[in-house]
Amino acid sequence: NKAHSQPSGGRAPIGYPGMTGMSDAGNFGGNNFMPINGLTAIQNQVLNLIKACPRPEGLNFQDLKSQLQHMSVSAVKQAVDFLSNEGHIYSTVDDDHFKSTDAD
């Protein structure tokens, strides 16, 4: 009276591929910055500047541009666009003034 046991629940050999192939993947594409918290470097800079602005109406676009002279206007605009889309910043008195939602 032998039970025919089948080792069905055996060990499944799960190979762990481990993406160790590339250590410290370099950022080769010039405008593809490393995302830190889901934001690119440029978006982070813009967000930080807006956060740092003490004025109640927020930072205006002119100031933003002049503080980010190494970036093109369109790049700054894009970052602002993205950040407001995500809800990190919002426009205040007009479309040129931005305030951060993170720092209240």
Partner: peptide, 20 residues
Amino acid sequence: LVRIQRNKAAALLRLAARNV
């Protein structure tokens, strides 16, 4: 200035929706 409040509220909603 209602506009600011509204924008802020909208932004916070977007942020909240993102974080869910």
